[in-house]
Simulated scan of single mutants.
Amino acid sequence: MNPLTEKQIRTSFVNATRGEASRAVLPDLGAIDWDRLEYLGWRDPKAPLNAYVVLELDEAPRALMLRAPEPGGRRRQAMCAWCEDIVAVDTVGLHVARRAGAPGRRGDTIGTLLCTDFACSAHVRRRPTRAEASTDADRERFVAHRIAGLRERSMRFVAEVCRTR
């Protein structure tokens, strides 16, 4: 992922008002290893039910404001729809995004199961087990396939939020 500035992130929100975007508490952008991310995701420490995701779609940053599950709430094991990691299944929760444009102003939303710590980029880079890939070359291809899948599924969700008809 290309490094982003605070201004780029705040102006790239597709489903938040200008006020909501300006009030979003951003992470320390200087401490982020952008080369190892397919998307940037975080929870607002001041409002833990607010979560945010930024990724590149059509070569431009697109940011989403999400409604996150309650911290410490009842959890069920589930698989993240973006990274599809089969190991980290107890840190997954339903995140809901208001749609962009007129549908969002009418209250239309879309939800997906996501890792609550937004660690999908790390999950897809986890070393495959021998059952998943037996040789080093197979492991590299397997990880590359998981990374491509994460990019495709996350971009598809953002595109669906942006769809206004």
Score class of each variant (00 low, 15 high):
S22A: 15
S22G: 09
R23V: 00
R23G: 03
P27G: 00
D28P: 09
L29T: 13
G30F: 04
D33N: 15
D33T: 04
W34V: 10
W34Y: 09
D35H: 11
D35A: 15
D35I: 14
E38W: 02
G41P: 12
G41S: 06
R43G: 04
D44S: 14
P48N: 01
P48L: 00
L49E: 14
N50C: 07
A51I: 00
Y52M: 08
V53F: 03
V54Q: 14
L55M: 15
L55T: 07
L55A: 15
E56R: 11
E56Y: 13
L57K: 08
E59M: 00
A63C: 14
A63K: 08
L64N: 11
M65C: 12
M65E: 13
M65P: 11
L66V: 02
R67V: 05
A68P: 09
E70S: 12
E70W: 04
P71C: 01
G72S: 10
G72D: 07
G72A: 05
G73S: 11
R74N: 11
R76V: 10
Q77K: 15
Q77D: 05
A78P: 01
M79T: 05
M79W: 02
C80R: 05
C80M: 08
A81L: 07
A81N: 14
W82Q: 10
W82K: 03
W82V: 02
C83W: 01
E84R: 14
D85F: 05
D85E: 07
I86M: 13
V89P: 03
D90C: 14
T91F: 02
T91D: 09
T91Q: 08
G93S: 06
L94S: 15
L94I: 06
H95E: 06
V96N: 09
A97S: 11
R98L: 07
A100I: 00
A102Y: 09
A102T: 06
P103M: 08
P103R: 10
G104K: 08
G104N: 07
G104T: 02
R105N: 07
R106A: 06
G107F: 04
T109K: 10
I110H: 10
I110M: 13
G111L: 06
G111M: 03
G111K: 05
G111D: 11
G111I: 01
L114A: 06
C115K: 02
C115S: 10
T116C: 07
T116D: 15
D117V: 03
D117A: 14
D117N: 13
F118C: 03
F118I: 03
F118S: 02
C120F: 09
S121K: 09
S121Q: 09
S121C: 08
H123V: 02
H123M: 07
R127N: 11
R130I: 10
R130A: 15
R130E: 13
A131Q: 10
A131V: 10
